[in-house]
Amino acid sequence: MTSTLRGTDHPVAARTLAALLVLGGLMGSVNLFLPGVLLPGVREWVYATAMAFCVLAAIPLVVRGRVSPRHTFGLVLLGDLIYLVVAYCTVDPLRFATPLMLLFPAFVAAWFLGRWELGVNMLVTTGVCLAALWPSHDDAVGLGVQVGVSAGMLNACAGGVFVLRRRIERLLSETQTLSHLDPLTGLFNRRYLVEQAPRMWRQARRDGTRVAAMVLDLDHFKRLNDAHGHAAGDAVLRAVSGSLTATVRPADVLARTGGEELVVLGLVADPDEAAHLAERLRTAVSGSRTPDGHGVTASIGIALTRPVDGEDAADALWRLVDRADAAMYEAKQQGRDRVASMWVPRARAPLPGENDPAAATDVG
């Protein structure tokens, strides 16, 4: 499952990490101006360099506006290393370099990275705590207790944040899925249909194919509801939806747009392919039955378009559906349980020496 919250490529994530780096660098720089905190000489310069590096590391994140998971993992390990530098450069690590400083990289790892990266950081956190606190303890027991408490608390907090994040991700994923589905039939809804339009328009332009819209309207559905009740009508809708789902191609989008009207959106090479698919859909509807034996037929209208650069895919989608809807009403007038097509003809000039009238070709 693609993470909903990890999204380290998102500009917000990059700016958040940049802000944490700058905040950490500025907070740590305060020690440069406090007497008796840092060891004098080379270590003071090492400390200042580490704080400056924190601030400078934020610049690429702000400029690029994104950060990859690998880059984020590197920043987390950098945070662990900087804590080790701080502990190495301070007079008393227990007072001036508390392991709580590792909460920054621990929380970043828990919120943005995956299981194995988090596991690696937990091991690194334990090792860094051991290395940083070693000089401050004379006995192994006291060191072990201090490292166990510090690293255990940090890793427990990181693990808790990770579990919370995964729970939120699952809830968001389920909510997003439900927002795209029709509750009665389980088919996609109008919102999902609109969201898929840009993708299909791009693919059609790239492949040189056409977008076909097929509007299906169940015949005499109101009569069925009046005669057998709405429960029977709902059962018919579910049966029809199941048959259509098994019939459409994997790349097609099947959606319920309201009432007894369904829309299929797909890519086709020519009108014949669209007509063949529509006929398969019509047969699937007429062959579907509820456990009580109720069934319906469908009138289907087809319209095609060849997407062009610069057009708004959502607007073009509804223009195409309107044309397919008009064709569907033509199928109703012709007797129902049939397929009708809505082509938009375009005249072409006769070739030299050609005596036939101008031919019409489909531009849909």
Rank of each mutant, 00 (worst) to 15 (best):
A327I: 02
V120F: 14
A50L: 08
Y192G: 05
M153S: 11
E169C: 10
I82Y: 01
E260P: 02
R319A: 07
R190N: 06
L102A: 07
A251C: 12
T49N: 10
L265C: 07
E260Y: 01
N31D: 10
L187P: 00
S3H: 12
S136Y: 04
W201K: 06
R306D: 09
G148I: 03
R43W: 10
W318R: 09
M122Y: 12
G127W: 06
G259S: 09
T209R: 14
Y329F: 12
E330A: 14
L143E: 07
V124H: 07
V194Q: 14
R95I: 14
G119W: 13
R346L: 06
V145G: 05
E273I: 05
R289L: 15
L78I: 10
V248S: 03
W343H: 10
L34Y: 07
L103Q: 10
S3G: 15
P198E: 08
Y47I: 03
Y47G: 01
T125W: 05
D312R: 11
D272C: 08
L84G: 08
N121P: 05
R256L: 09
G152F: 07
M153F: 11
R64S: 11
N189C: 07
F33H: 08
E279I: 04
G152L: 09
F104D: 06
T209M: 12
G208R: 03
A19N: 00
V86K: 06
H71W: 15
G295L: 10
L187G: 00
A52H: 05
L304V: 04
Q196P: 03
L181V: 08
N225M: 12
H137K: 06
P352M: 07
A274F: 06
M101C: 14
C54V: 00
R191E: 03
L81G: 14
C89Y: 08
V85P: 07
C54D: 10
D80V: 05
T4Y: 09
G160N: 10
V147K: 00
V285L: 11
A251P: 04
L130T: 09
R43V: 01
A349M: 11
S179D: 10
V363A: 13
L281T: 05
H10D: 07
G41Q: 03
A106L: 10
A213V: 00
L78A: 15
V263H: 05
E260T: 04
G79D: 03
V296W: 01
P105V: 11
R15G: 01
D252Q: 06
I82D: 00
L133N: 02
E330P: 00
V124W: 05
V264G: 03
T175E: 13
F107H: 12
M1G: 14
V194E: 15
V363K: 06
C54R: 04
